[in-house]
Write a protein that binds this DNA or RNA. Structure first.
Lengths: 327, 327
DNA sequence: TCGATTCCTTAACACGTTTCAAGAGGCCCG
DNA sequence: CGGGCCTCTTGAAACGTGTTAAGGAATCGA
């Protein structure tokens, strides 16, 4: 029932508490024979190091925070999986913080992370109000920005190049002979939507914007209805994400439009179901899990080797996955 | 730069450290005027409580663990979102632990949680080897099982009734006149698959099993191919999840089969895209987020009020969402 | 004046880490 | 063969920070 402490282990092994601590943290410093005796005592008593006590002395805990905008969003889920991979391999705990796209809630959860004295935070900040991040850094908490540009040079950041992704999609659509394309997207206030549009424009052809309020399948159906009502269909449509694209596809197919013969469609994200649609979706894939892994690696490096750590801003490149909707 | 401690606040406010602690934890115990002075000092110095120090004395930290089988799986993602809602509202931190369906890794991550002295753990255990959970309880860490039956009476558990879900789906399919149905599923070693099959059988008609190795869209396409090759198509198919169902749908539709006229299809989970398929999918919906919220509520109640806490095993009921694939 | 109350201070405490010094044993040199 | 010195290992004690029980000072009512 009662917790076994390092002292109990020490007593059992016939050594002092300091020696037990050395066995746990610098096994090389302790004579082989003593070490084995201590390790046996740890086993027998079922001792588990008290994380709070360690971090109290050390000043920071072996944990890192992961602050995301929406934990139920598959993008962040993949980031979380990648980060957890890396962190748990290093014996770090991951503290989950969901800002739910609410700046006030973000402030609250960052406070909790600060109280826990996490070594660092992986964050996709809500909005562009970043002074909260500076507050974290003042407290000695390292910050790595995820899918958001660094706002200062002495900071790590990882992102996927959305402009390149837009260009990739648009170039592919234009390569089949289309003269113009339509971009179906959520509000352009969202950086990702804006960047992908910019990228598409760089492919050289005129781009018509079709903005819908929600970036889900319903939004895509709505877009399909709008296109059908508006007159001649575009030859090529680029959607800011796969949910929009799948909704659009449904709307078009139900109206008897042939895809890709009449309209070619490219989505973004390459979600699991992109290939499972009746007309399998061509889509831009992002290396999200890798993004999470690298972000965590950068953060852990910053935590564990602050002197040698070099701040880096890493931009991953997306790739196009060609399927039936735009061969 | 340097951390401000409770003593700095005490000095600034002209009181003792103990008083500051009382302001933070039992504001009622402190005179109004003093309280305001302390609160002002906290503000001015930007003091943040040192979580490790608190938990060291208190014996446990204001945090809980969330141990899931696959953090990238939308089911667990929703559970996580629900749990995070509740926990962060109570000022608790959520420690994320991904067992990746690997018992050895589960053991490692549970160890990390034990080191952090979390107040409790929300866990969907890997396999049926539950003695690790008993080890946690011996250490005073409360456990709530998620989507897994309690293995002892003095324990909380939350789950969704998969048997009822199977019956719901099968009954609906049979109501339209089908005499028999086919169940497309992953391995029956998975409890959810087994329970849903049991439930379907209870609807009264003969059920043919079609087992595929992976519960994703590819598995569904594979099932469609098998059905098409096997001879007369079944009138009704129940899939153990929506990915299977969508893959099946794609396979059937591409082969020119009309859904629902020739084959009626029901899926499970009601994922976002269920309604966005060309033939919108009828599916069994589970209140997953609610599951996560209630699980966290039970756990926090157990942590904060151990004397009055009553262990409960809660079973949520799924509901059928009727769409085009099986009207 | 005495007890009750209110409010605050003091000091012990939780527990692993780390520093410093001392003990043990071995080795070199005379 | 013995003393001095060095190395390796171990133990004792301080430390970090907030919590809490016990106690004391001041105020108030009777």
């Amino acid at each position: 029932m009662k917790d076994v402490s390092i002292k109990d282990v020490a007593a059992r092994a016939g050594v002092s508490a300091g020696t037990v601590s050395n066995v746990l943290n610098r096994p090389g410093k302790v004579a082989e024979e003593t070490r084995l005796r201590v390790e046996r005592a740890v086993q027998e008593l079922g001792f588990v190091r008290h994380g709070s006590a360690s971090s109290l002395r050390a000043g920071r805990s072996r944990s890192l925070g992961l602050a995301v905008i929406d934990i139920a969003n598959p993008f962040f889920t993949e980031v979380a999986a990648g980060a957890e991979d890396v962190a748990s391999a290093e014996g770090y705990a991951v503290l989950l913080a969901n800002s739910a796209a609410d700046p006030a809630k973000q402030e609250r959860v960052l406070r909790v992370l600060a109280e826990q004295r996490v070594g660092g935070v992986l964050i996709t900040p809500v909005g562009d109000e970043l002074h909260q991040l500076d507050l974290l850094r003042e407290r000695g908490i390292n910050v790595v920005l995820v899918d958001h540009p660094a706002h200062r040079p002495d900071q790590c950041a990882v992102a996927v190049n959305d402009v390149a992704g837009g260009t990739l999609a648009a170039t592919h659509l234009l390569a089949s002979g289309a003269r113009a394309l339509t971009y179906v997207s959520g509000p352009l206030g969202i950086r990702q939507c804006r960047d992908r549009l910019d990228g598409a424009r760089r492919a050289g052809a005129p781009v018509t914007e079709l903005i819908v309020p929600a970036m889900n399948a319903r939004g895509g159906e709505r877009a399909a209805a709008d296109l059908l009502a508006a007159g001649p269909l575009p030859e090529a449509v680029f959607c800011a994400n796969d949910l929009l694209a799948l909704g659009l596809l449904r709307g078009l197919l139900q109206a008897g439009v042939r895809v890709p013969e009449q309209v070619r469609v490219v989505g973004y994200d390459d979600i699991d179901l992109a290939g499972a649609s009746v007309v399998a979706l061509t889509s831009v894939r992002q290396p999200i899990r890798r993004l999470g892994q690298v972000a965590a690696e950068l953060l852990l490096d910053e935590c564990d080797h602050p002197e040698t750590h070099a701040h880096r801003q890493i931009m991953f490149q997306p790739e196009l996955v060609v399927r039936e909707s735009a061969p």
